[in-house]
Design a protein around this nucleic acid. Structure first.
Lengths: 258, 258
DNA sequence: CGCCTTCTTGAAGGATCTCAAGAAGGGTGG
DNA sequence: CCACCCTTCTTGAGATCCTTCAAGAAGGCG
C-alpha cells in the first residue's frame, strides 16, 4: 500500500540533480523538497505507466532502473530511454500527461509518485522551478538525440561501447582497482532493446569487448577495464549529458525574487 | 544583411502552433507576436547553427526545411530532427544555449532569429508562455522517441513509410485528386541520413513503394497514393505528434492572470 | 531437485552496404 | 543556344554485418 511521508531524503536527490544545472533560491529548493510523494515498489518486468494512459503524477526513480518502451508492429520492443535513481522518468508528463509509450521496471524498482497538481503548483508559483524542470527534460531529449545517432549510424560494437560510457557517466561510476565500475541491473535482452540489436548479437558483441580487454558486463555490474579505449571506440563525447557543469555555468533565466 | 521589422505575420504561424496545444491569454499571445526577430536567408546545404556553438538566439523556420545533424567518427551523418515552416528549430536552446549538434538548411531557407533575451523575458514574465514553449519542445522529444523506434526496430520500407506519414501529418498535407500531396524538398541522401540507411538503399526502397502503388517522391514533392496502406506498412500512429488537439483538450497549468 | 530465466555458441540466411558506373536533370558560361 | 559540369537518381553485383533458428550451459529460486 502506498503511503505518504516527508520524503525529503529521496526528493533531495532529485533536487541535487536539478541544482547541478540550474540555479534555484532557497525557497524554490524548499518547494521541491516539500512536494508530496507516494512511495511505491514495482516488481521487475512490470509496467508502472501504461501506453496511452493519462497520468496524474510523475515518477522519480529512487532505486533500480526503468525503461521507456516503444514497439513495432511485430511486437519487437525498443527501449527509448533508461532512467536511473534520482531522475524523474516522465518529467514531460507534467506538460503532456497523455503518454505514447510505457514505462517498465527493468529491475525491482522503488519510485516516488509526485502528483502533477503539486508539481504544477510549484512550477506556476516559481518560474525558475518550471525552467529547471524544462532544462532537465531537455537533457533527456539530448540523450534521445544521441541514441538516434547511435542506432542509426554506428555498428554493434560502437553502439554498446557508447551506451556503456553513457551509463558510466550518468551513474557517476567510480574507479575501483583501476577499473571503472557501476551497477547496471539489466539483462542482455534489455541491452538489445536499447541498441536495436538482437540478444544473440549483444551477447557476441559483449564477448568481443571482453576479449578486447575493454569492458565486462556480468552479475548486474559493468566493469570498464580501459576507459580511454572504450570511449574512443564508442565515439563518446559526454558534453550532451550536461554533467560537470561548473557552478558559475549553471543557468537561470528568471529574475530571483527571494 | 539582416534587418529588424514587425514580424507578426511570421511569428503568427509560430504562435498558432503553440495555440494548437496550449492556452494563452491575449496578453501572452501578444508577447509572442511582439518578439523582436531578424530575418535571414540561408542557402541550401549550409549550417546556420554550428556544433558546440553557444547561441544567443533561437530560429523559427519561415520557409524551407532544416535538419539537425549528428555524426559518427567516420563522418557518416545522421539527421536527428527535421524542422519545417512554423517550427522553432532550436527551442531547447532557450534553456540550454550550448548545443551539441548542428543545424543545416536542407533547402534554401528563410529563418527568423529570435534573441534568447527576448524569449526569456517573455517566458519569465508569463509563466504560461514558458509552459507552452516547454510543451512544444516536448513534442520534439516525442518525435525523437519515435525515430529511435523507427531506426532501431523497423526495416527500410517501414522506416521510410513511417517518415512519409509523419511528414505528411506535420505538413498538414491536403488531398489532391485523391492523393495526399505535400512539398518535401529533400534529396534521397537526406532521407538516408534521417533513416540511418544508405542513399542507394533509400533509392531502391522508394522504388519499391512506387511500384507497390503506395507513394511517389519526385521533384521535391511527395505524393501518397494509398494513405491507408502506407500508414499500416509504416506502423504510423499519429498521436505522438499532438496535432488535432481539440480546443477543450489544450492545456494550461498556470492560473490565468489577465 | 527441478524449473525458469539468462547466457552462450554454432550455422545458415537475409537485409543492407559498398563499390562502380551510367542516366537524368538543372544551372552557368561561352 | 549549346556545351559542360555538377548534383541527384538509378541499377547491378558482390560483400558483410546482423538476424534467425536451434540447442545446450549456467545460475537463481522455490
Amino acid at each position: 500500500m502506498p503511503f505518504q511521508t516527508p520524503h525529503q531524503p529521496n526528493l533531495r536527490r532529485f533536487l541535487d540533480r536539478l541544482l547541478s544545472r540550474s540555479v534555484l533560491s532557497d525557497r524554490e529548493q524548499q518547494a521541491i523538497l516539500d512536494l508530496p510523494a507516494y512511495v511505491a515498489q514495482v516488481p521487475a518486468n512490470s509496467d508502472f505507466v501504461r501506453m496511452g494512459e493519462v497520468v496524474d503524477h510523475a515518477c522519480v526513480i529512487v532505486e533500480g532502473i526503468a525503461g521507456r518502451f516503444g514497439q513495432n508492429a511485430n511486437g519487437a520492443r525498443q527501449i527509448t530511454a533508461l532512467h536511473i535513481a534520482g531522475e524523474m522518468a516522465d518529467l514531460h508528463s507534467v506538460v503532456q500527461p497523455k503518454g505514447c509509450s510505457a514505462l517498465q521496471a527493468l529491475s525491482t524498482l522503488t519510485i516516488l509518485r509526485v502528483p502533477h497538481r503539486a508539481l504544477r503548483a510549484a512550477a506556476g508559483r516559481y518560474p525558475a522551478v518550471a525552467e529547471a524542470l524544462w532544462r532537465d527534460s531537455s537533457v533527456d531529449a539530448a540523450i534521445l538525440s544521441q541514441w538516434v545517432v547511435n542506432v542509426g549510424r554506428r555498428d554493434a560494437r560502437t553502439r554498446i561501447a557508447h551506451l556503456l560510457c553513457e551509463m558510466a557517466t550518468r551513474y557517476k561510476a567510480y574507479r575501483n582497482e583501476g577499473d571503472i565500475v557501476f551497477e547496471f541491473p539489466v539483462t542482455q535482452a534489455h541491452l538489445a532493446d536499447v541498441t536495436g540489436l538482437t540478444p544473440v548479437h549483444v551477447n557476441r558483441t559483449l564477448k568481443g569487448l571482453r576479449e578486447a580487454g575493454l569492458a565486462i558486463m556480468a552479475d548486474r555490474m559493468v566493469r570498464i577495464l580501459d576507459w580511454e579505449e572504450l570511449a574512443i571506440l564508442g565515439e563518446f563525447e559526454p558534453a550532451y549529458l550536461q554533467t560537470d557543469i561548473r557552478p558559475e555555468e549553471r543557468l537561470r533565466i528568471v529574475r530571483i525574487v527571494q
